[in-house]
């Protein structure tokens, strides 16, 4: 059939209501590709939320370690002045030992109970450190020493970093939990066996030493 016989003027005689075979193929491809790409995007979104939780957890662990690393220097400084306060010193050393005994992990504890256990151990250390600093502050000579001021500042900084890291961790967990509970990501989470992550409850474990504010 020539174009002229269709009455056109050099135009293919195809009506708009009848898509060409190529167009039909493209529509089918789009129909398959779009859901597939959407699935990939959803999967990547959930994965990136999960990685954000792990990254935030790494900050929490690093902050815990930072505090634990300060304890020997603090105990050593205080020991020189507070010979009669050995009970407080022993308590701090014990609490540190308990806290660092818990194995470090790339991933946060899966259950609330496990996270709570870790929080309690860290909280014990925080409270004992706060007690030690409070006792040390009653000794004017120690309180005015630059070395003690420096240690106290570093300790307070470590406590604050724990607090901030936990807030950021909870934010990351909140975003992750929301991501895996909303449809259609919830189907993906169920298929892949993804569980909701545990939160730190009310800053547990960081509250012990936070009132260390310098005077």
């Amino acid at each position: 059939m020539s174009w002229e016989t269709s009455g056109g003027v050099g135009v293919p005689p195809i009506a708009l209501g009848q898509p060409r075979p190529g167009l039909r193929l493209a529509l089918v491809a789009i129909g398959v590709l779009v859901p597939l790409l959407a699935g990939f995007a959803l999967h990547n979104h959930v994965v990136s939320r999960g990685e954000a939780v792990d990254a935030a957890w790494a900050q929490v662990e690093s902050a815990h370690q930072r505090r634990a690393d300060l304890v020997p220097a603090l105990v050593e400084t205080v020991k020189r002045h507070l010979r009669q306060e050995s009970e407080t010193l022993v308590a701090v050393i014990e609490a540190r030992s308990q806290a660092v005994r818990l194995p470090a992990s790339e991933h946060p504890p899966a259950s609330e109970a496990e996270l709570s256990r870790l929080g309690r151990a860290q909280g014990e250390l925080g409270r004992d450190l706060a007690r030690l600093v409070a006792v040390a502050e009653t000794y004017p000579e120690l309180r005015s020493a630059d070395s003690f001021l420096a240690l106290q500042a570093q300790l307070e900084g470590a406590e604050n970093r724990i607090h901030v890291a936990r807030l950021e961790y909870n934010d990351a967990v909140r975003a992750y939990n929301a991501a895996i509970q909303q449809l259609p990501a919830a189907w993906l989470a169920e298929a892949r066996g993804l569980q909701r992550r545990a939160y730190f409850e009310s800053d547990e474990g960081a509250e012990g030493a936070r009132p260390l504010g310098l005077e």
């Binding site: 307070e156 900084g157 604050n160 724990i162 607090h163 890291a165 310098l214």
Partner: peptide
């Protein structure tokens, strides 16, 4: 951003 570094005092 900040990770909580610095110091607070009276």
């Amino acid at each position: 951003g900040s990770a909580g570094g610095g110091a607070r005092t009276a």
